[in-house]
Design a protein around this nucleic acid. Structure first.
Lengths: 255, 255
DNA sequence: CGGACTTTGCACGGTTCCGTACAGCAACGT
DNA sequence: ACGTTGCTGTACGGAACCGTGCAAAGTCCG
């Protein structure tokens, strides 16, 4: 943390990646040594603070980020100030997938939603070159994009069919999956943005989840207490993309 | 319609495509002669009736469909009976994009939403083989998938931020873009499914749109009257994916 | 023409969620 | 200690929307 200073707009100062550093990103660890070798020379470690912008909607994508720590919120915005979360990405994926799908611009704002966010970053051209060289690398990256797309679909269904309480249960699960501990650092205000509701609705919904002993809410934090109960509440808007991820990327689930 | 009989479950009887037949699918027409040549030998003409299932959620994708006429609704379903529309695909795209993204199963139900639907169908293996041979073909198909993903993102935002009336304006526009006439054949019940609301809410919203002279609603039909007014209502949940489509697939908009 | 069926219009009370406002409480710097 | 700031709890009336049920109108078919 001494030499890695994070700046505004997510233009974090980067350090070269040390070859012996352990990998936290599950896409990278799932790659064959050959495929990883295509990427490794270009990877550099960057760090982000809460709220840092990783990509901005409409901007050209000049680099991609494989998250190692932290969670990125993928936000779509209306012309007014309001922004809504359409998905979450953590160490199970990467940021910049439109590149692999033939677009050089990001349709979304992507911002860091956790403290001490870290990612391995590489230039867009290097990624495209690597993808052109290795069909298996391309496949892995595309599969992640596909799973993310499925997640977005469930977000649509969830927001159409479910109450705030149920939708909140789902987001907590999505968050929980991507975080190391049972402790989720998020204020009601941040929940409000994700769910697209009023702040006090968040308060109420959290209380109801607390009454059912699914979580424990303390200041600026949510402690996950009963994952099973959360899953029951979220219903089948949670689970499908997660199963697809395991099936397509041949990995074990973290928990 | 004499020899092409549509069956239940979308297993329409197919006829070989005649080489001199004009193409209606905008993805196919945008392909280079070489790329189209990779697909042409495998294309066969199939037709669908309203409600025919083109792909079913969870099933293996054994063929892809380039729509020539009609509109397909992409539906995500909860375990109960309720299904919600996450997007629409017409002659500007194709059905079966998860294949190109490395999944051989469809996460969605896709059903024909217009009468006299027609598509050029080809086997999944043939498509995958063609895509492996031609990077430009792959790029075109991926770009469509990407634009569809952007459309889904806007669906999330629209359902979070907008009233039924505004969301309806958006769906009418999406439908209108993909249909040849200003006449949209759809009952309130079908709207209900797309929007995830109660049937009489559809009635009310249509009345409001009618009062503003944006549309004219008659039995089982909506006549688009003032597209500009619809776009004003839909706000910026309409337009972005459409612009992206033009930008990425280098085509003129139909209207 | 008459009956069956589909589609649409409308009304009722009830619930969820909104916008807004304000007060209590925790964290923090000085 | 004190004020400042950020986070949370709570309350109020109002709007949007729901589930339901039923009647009217259009369409189809014999």
């Amino acid at each position: 943390m001494s030499t890695i200073v994070s700046l505004a707009r997510g233009a974090a100062v980067a350090t070269p990646r040390r070859d012996d550093a352990p990998l936290g990103n599950r896409l990278l660890t799932s790659l064959s040594p050959e495929d990883f070798g295509l990427l490794a020379p270009h990877l550099e470690l960057v760090s982000f603070a809460v709220g840092d912008c990783i990509t901005r909607a409409g901007d050209p994508i000049d680099s991609v980020c494989f998250l190692e720590q932290g969670i990125a919120g993928v936000l779509d915005s209306l012309d007014d100030d309001r922004r809504y979360a359409v998905g979450l990405v953590g160490a199970e994926g990467f940021i910049g997938w439109p590149l692999v799908m033939g677009d050089d611009r990001s349709p979304y704002d992507v911002t860091m939603r956790a403290e001490r966010g870290q990612a391995l970053r590489m230039p867009a051209e290097a990624l495209l070159a690597a993808v052109d060289q290795s069909p298996t690398l391309r496949l892995t990256l595309l599969r992640f994009a596909h799973v993310f797309m499925v997640q977005m679909g469930r977000t649509v269904v969830s927001s159409l069919a479910h109450s705030i309480e149920r939708r909140m249960a789902r987001w907590i699960l999505l968050y929980h999956d991507r975080v190391q501990a049972d402790e989720i650092c998020m204020t009601h205000e941040e929940f409000r943005l994700m769910l697209g509701v009023r702040r006090s609705s968040v308060t109420d919904a959290l209380h109801r989840l607390e009454e059912e002993h699914a979580i424990r809410a303390v200041r600026a934090k949510v402690l996950v207490h009963d994952r099973t109960k959360l899953m029951a509440l979220a219903g089948d808007t949670y689970g499908q993309p997660e199963q697809d991820y395991v099936r397509l990327l041949q990995m074990d689930r973290r928990r």
